[in-house]
Simulated assay, not measured.
Amino acid sequence: MSIIKLERLENIRKTARTSRKNAKNLHSWTFYQLQQFISNKATLVGIQVVEVNPAYTSQTCPVCGEKNKAKDRRYECSCGFKTHRDRVGAINIIRQPVTDGNNLSA
């Protein structure tokens, strides 16, 4: 069975740090609506959608597990792993187990 994993984005507007320049863009996004669109389309073709905890996904090294903050958009770990911080987040999200049954229903 195919699975799409999405970050659980509740309270993102309260926790996200942003500049005034980007504040309007952040607060105009409809995260819930986007998740529902993805869930509805996935359901039509038999793909399960689950939410995962986004905590530290872009800060945890997928090789050694050490937490590091990215400098600009670049993630570098003392173990030698280097990549874009969004890739680090994606790797960590895909590796999270699906165990809590927190599915998005269409």
Rank of each mutant, 00 (worst) to 15 (best):
D86S: 00
F81R: 03
T18R: 07
V50Q: 10
Q96S: 11
H27F: 08
T60C: 04
I47M: 05
R73L: 03
G65W: 00
Q48M: 12
N22E: 08
R95G: 09
T18I: 15
R73G: 03
R20K: 10
C61W: 03
A23V: 05
V63G: 03
T57A: 02
A42L: 06
I12H: 14
I94W: 08
P97L: 06
G80A: 07
C64K: 04
L6D: 02
S2W: 03
G89R: 09
E10S: 14
N22D: 07
K69V: 01
K14V: 02
I94P: 06
R13H: 14
Q36N: 11
L44K: 10
S105C: 09
V88F: 01
F81Y: 09
N102E: 10
C79D: 06
Q33K: 09
L26S: 05
Q59V: 00
W29I: 14
R87Q: 10
S19D: 04
I3Y: 13
K14N: 09
L34V: 15
R8D: 15
R87P: 02
K24F: 13
K5C: 05
P97N: 14
Q35H: 03
R8T: 05
I12T: 10
E7R: 09
N25F: 12
E76C: 07
Q33A: 15
M1G: 12
S39P: 10
E51G: 09
I47Q: 00
N92M: 07
R13M: 12
I47K: 09
N102F: 11
L44D: 12
C64P: 04
P62H: 08
Y75R: 13
I94N: 13
A42T: 09
N68K: 04
L34A: 15
S78V: 04
C79Q: 05
K21S: 11
S58H: 06
L34Y: 06
R87W: 03
V52C: 12
I93Y: 07
